[in-house]
Design a protein around this nucleic acid. Structure first.
Lengths: 212, 212
DNA sequence: TGCCAATAACTCAAATTTGAGTATAATGAC
DNA sequence: GTCATTATACTCAAATTTGAGTTATTGGCA
């Protein structure tokens, strides 16, 4: 649904054609945390049109050319309502912050130390590059964009710094080999775990967002 | 592909049937940052079987019952290879840390102040609940699980704390109304932006993961 | 002891995403 | 001046995810 939110959000400002929406999403860096694929964009636009949330305002064909015509869309009245309700939906999504490496963590012990070390280093470099980029973006645009938008960028930066700290720890433990130590658990530990588990699930229920 | 990684990772340990895989994923809390749907699980298992990465080890039918038979799967030799290469793939994924609210940020200014304030508060509560849950999990299991797995949980906690800080700032600015101020940009600002933009894109290229 | 909710173990159609392709125009490099 | 790349503006089949069922067993409890 986030594709829909973005499209409607942009059409709240003014009429646009799909490709222009795409450009704007990139220009405003919304795609840094969002996979923008042409297919999904055009698909979503078409759905929105079928649902009557947007409508064709104009079809521009460059004369004497057989370039595809551009269809310029405008948001409808029910589109505006849908936008507000999608905005609320987005606010109601709650989930743990994600990192692709989290899912790999339980398995690193099956991997090769030298390989893992190299891969973590790569991640760290990528993380630092993203951080530098975001800091530059904030400097460049911070003052001229709406406050909400700059808060987004500040969020990237804060999360990026946390990511960096975490990756540094990971790197250290990959180097020291701690990550690959086989662990043994004593009977007591397991016992403590099993008894703890029951009251735990009562006291700390899984997040409501968990679709199980 | 992360579903595949998890399935293969679990079958690296021992044979399991799909439902047991599902249980284990939940028991180990891998689903806290991962949407576990039955459909995807069974689909992925079937694909893996077709690709020869896993194979049926045994079909257990509870005698005298018409409960569906359980098919127990085991990883094959090529499955082991595939697992290692998937693990590397996962390490090569780089992306900005995500938060569902980031995408909503550019649009908050179209929303109603009282509504936004309430929604942010809800987020904050959910964030704190997740944090408490993760801290309890770490306490409960930290000592008896492999180091990689506890690093995952520590990551959740670190990211969760950062999230909380960010949400507090957001709340403050929603309350003060700063989030809804209309902004004006001067000619110079726009000029500075436009000239800065060119060298910016050279110096800070978008992350390689960006599929555009 | 009979009922209700939860657990176990899947299945399936419909919605959506993905990845790759098409075709032309403008731009820059040598 | 031409050759290769990048930008414009989409389309489409195939892969995957989603959401909602289905059927049977077990545990709790009034």
């Amino acid at each position: 649904m986030s594709m829909r939110l973005m499209i409607l959000g942009l059409l709240m400002e003014r009429e646009r054609h799909p490709y222009e929406i795409r450009q704007t999403i990139k220009l405003r860096n919304w795609n840094e945390s969002f996979k923008l694929r042409d297919g999904s964009l055009y698909y979503a636009v078409d759905q929105l049109r079928q649902d009557g949330l947007i409508e064709a305002a104009e079809v521009v064909s460059v004369p004497g050319e057989n370039r595809p015509d551009k269809t310029i869309y405008r948001i409808t009245e029910s589109g505006r309502e849908a936008f507000l309700s999608l905005l609320q939906e987005q606010f109601k999504l709650t989930s743990y912050p994600q990192h692709p490496l989290f899912l790999a963590m339980p398995f690193v012990r099956h991997g090769d130390q030298a390989m893992i070390e190299k891969l973590v280093l790569k991640q760290l470099e990528a993380c630092e590059a993203r951080l530098a980029r975001m800091e530059a973006i904030l400097e460049l645009k911070g003052a001229i964009i709406p406050r909400g938008s700059s808060l987004m960028i500040e969020g990237f930066i804060q999360f990026g710094r946390t990511e960096k700290e975490w990756l540094l720890r990971l790197l250290e433990e990959a180097r020291s080999g701690k990550l690959f130590e086989s662990h043994q658990m004593t009977e007591e530990q397991i016992q403590a775990y099993v008894t703890g588990l029951k009251e735990f699930e009562k006291k700390y229920p899984p997040s409501a967002a968990d679709p199980t």
